[in-house]
């Protein structure tokens, strides 16, 4: 699975981190870091993260 976060949109809300902690995390400066090619087993989590992102910045490509 391929995940893309539009970093121009992302405002570091961190909601995605709660939904899918294996894929998204906040780095030491409070900015978003993420795994761009997570395992397919994490799809449900990642879809939930995409749903809860207030800026709708997360896209799942295939």
């Amino acid at each position: 699975m391929k995940v893309v976060v539009d970093m121009n949109k992302c405002q570091d809300h961190g909601q995605c981190v709660f939904a899918a902690p294996d894929v998204f995390r906040m780095d030491d400066d409070g900015h978003l870091a993420y795994v761009p090619d997570p395992d397919d087993a994490l799809r449900d989590e990642v879809e939930e993260a995409a749903d809860v992102c207030p800026l709708q910045a997360i896209r799942i490509e295939d």
Binding site: D12, G14, V17, F18, M26, D29, G30
Partner: peptide, 12 residues
């Protein structure tokens, strides 16, 4: 700021 945001995650 960030301290508040990080703390919020813990309390959440």
């Amino acid at each position: 700021g960030q301290a508040a945001a990080r703390g919020a995650a813990r309390y959440r």
